[in-house]
Computed example of a mutant assay.
Amino acid sequence: MELTRFLAALAVILPLAYSAPTETVTRLHPEILAAMKRDLGLDTEQATARVARELQATDVIDQLRNSVGAQFAGAWVADDGNTINVGVTDESLTAEVTAAGATPVVLANSFTKLEEAKLALDNLEIDQASVLDTTSASSGIAAYYVDVVANKLVLEALADSTAHAEELAAQVGLTASEFEVRVVDSLPTTFATVTGGDAYYINRSARCSIGFSVTTGFVSAGHCGSVGASATTPGGESLGTFSGSVFPGSADMSFIRTVSGTTLRGYINNYSGGSLPVSGSTASAVGASICRSGSTTGVHCGTVRALGVTVSYSQGRVTGLTQTSVCAEPGDSGGSYYSGAQAQGVTSGGSGDCTSGGTTFFQPVNEILSTYGLTLVRA
């Protein structure tokens, strides 16, 4: 299979563009629309309006976060996709929020305080034997993040680790009203696998999904391969070499520099015989609709649940991920997350599957681009 055709139909597993949209969304690609109808229960008009509103929400939230300063308490898009909620700790700022086109919500805890507590957890030398015991079905801390809707730092833990989670929250200075421990059924895992499929292979063994095309190659998840590892097509043809990779730690990201002559296109594989265009990479807010494309399960949609999440994998903690309600399965790792035609990130890991549903995390794509000095290929 020639590299041009392979990357046109496969590397396009994710949409990614490193710029803000320049025009209002008036329609969605039919494949994106179909996935949003199936997974979010929206009709054509509702889906189009929601994506346009979510793009607008990004600018409104950034504006208010800067103007209200230390009194900012987080922001999110409501379940209906129409309302932009902005939290403030000072009631006198509600008029300013309303004037900007958002709905003010007076909250007790500032986003800065909760975020600082989360960063303090990241810097703790946590005993992995007690925090992440992969041999036990009931102990371990899965993830922690600022839940802007609950206005608390949330620690997700298995049943036998709730007391440990409470101790960690107290250790970083949080009171009972500033954090919440939520019990989860399982620990997250990365989605790399050694089974076959229409994707790319690392050292001719493990399989992952190609991320977004950049002018010198493509991006994917860091856990898929380390620097120097080879990337090949399912047919064994050389795609390139991992030139950058981070996992675990501050990210789950990689950059694969492709061989000379490779054609790279700004599209996402829709796994229905076509492709989806990528026009930018404006990051979506909490509550926004989002879709994912991967080589195992194809296209699925859901919503953004939390930003800046720290996830505990068996290999170690990873900071700065985004949590979503979109399902994924082994082999989907590295695949694209997108909202409308805006690239969001590459699949990292999670729990559950696309039969029963699950929770997944992705590495924001703009961080990958800035870290490696890459330029996204757009349609």
Results as ranks from 00 to 15, higher is better:
F6A: 06
L7A: 12
A9F: 11
A11L: 14
V12G: 15
P15S: 15
A20W: 10
E23M: 11
T26F: 10
L28M: 11
E31I: 01
E31A: 13
L33Y: 09
A34G: 04
A34K: 08
M36A: 15
A47H: 10
T48V: 15
R50M: 15
R50D: 09
A52P: 06
R53V: 07
Q56P: 04
A57M: 04
D62A: 14
G69Q: 05
A70K: 15
T83C: 11
T83D: 10
I84Y: 07
V88A: 10
S92Q: 12
S92H: 12
E96A: 12
T98D: 10
G101F: 01
P104R: 06
F111W: 14
K113G: 08
L114N: 01
E115R: 09
A120E: 07
L121N: 02
D122Q: 11
D122Y: 04
D127R: 06
D127V: 06
Q128P: 10
A129H: 12
D133F: 01
A142C: 04
Y144G: 00
V148H: 09
E156R: 05
S161A: 10
E167V: 13
E167F: 10
V172I: 02
L174S: 03
E178M: 13
E178S: 08
V181N: 00
V183Q: 08
D185F: 06
S186Y: 06
L187R: 09
T189L: 12
T189N: 09
T193R: 14
R204I: 05
R204W: 11
R207A: 02
R207D: 00
C208M: 01
C208H: 00
F212D: 01
S213V: 01
T215V: 09
T215R: 07
T216D: 03
F218A: 00
F218K: 00
S220R: 02
C224T: 00
G228Q: 04
E237W: 06
L239R: 00
T241K: 05
F242N: 01
P248C: 01
A251G: 04
I256V: 15
S260R: 15
R265I: 11
G266V: 03
N270W: 00
N270H: 04
P277S: 08
S281I: 08
A285N: 13
V286Y: 04
G287Q: 07
A288W: 06
A288K: 06
S293N: 02
S295A: 12
C301T: 05
T324E: 04
S325P: 07
S336V: 13
Y338T: 13
Q342C: 05
Q342R: 14
Q344K: 09
T347N: 09
S348M: 07
G352E: 02
Q363V: 00
T371Q: 06
Y372Q: 05
